[in-house]
Amino acid sequence: MNWLDIGALSDIPQRGARLVKTMHGCVAVFRTGDDEVFAIDDRCPHKGGPLSEGIVHGHAVTCPLHNMVISLESGLAQGADQGAVATYPARVEDGRILLDAKRLIRGAAA
């Protein structure tokens, strides 16, 4: 892995998200209430809603367009819904957010 510093943990509000633009579209980087970070594609499997704008609860986010709930850990739709988004390795070190640059640059397909 090739960890890339993309910003400070404090740049994202608790239970919020910010975007990282890549060649393959936007990746949403979430900070949960317990200060963990998760990176997933910013495209809802339903109709492409911007997941980064959803309400974050536990380790899940609710899509702002039609309320599909997506697990930040697995990228899978929860409950009765079907669908999945790509997830990317992410971690916090000394208050900085690190993402796996290789995966990000290669995109979800890899």
């Binding site: 993309i6 910010r18 975007l19 990282v20 633009k21 990000l104 640059i105």
Partner: peptide, 12 residues
């Protein structure tokens, strides 16, 4: 604005 813009990074 986005936190970071990686569109300029070249793919390997």
């Amino acid at each position: 604005a986005p936190l970071a813009d990686l569109t300029k990074e070249a793919a390997e």
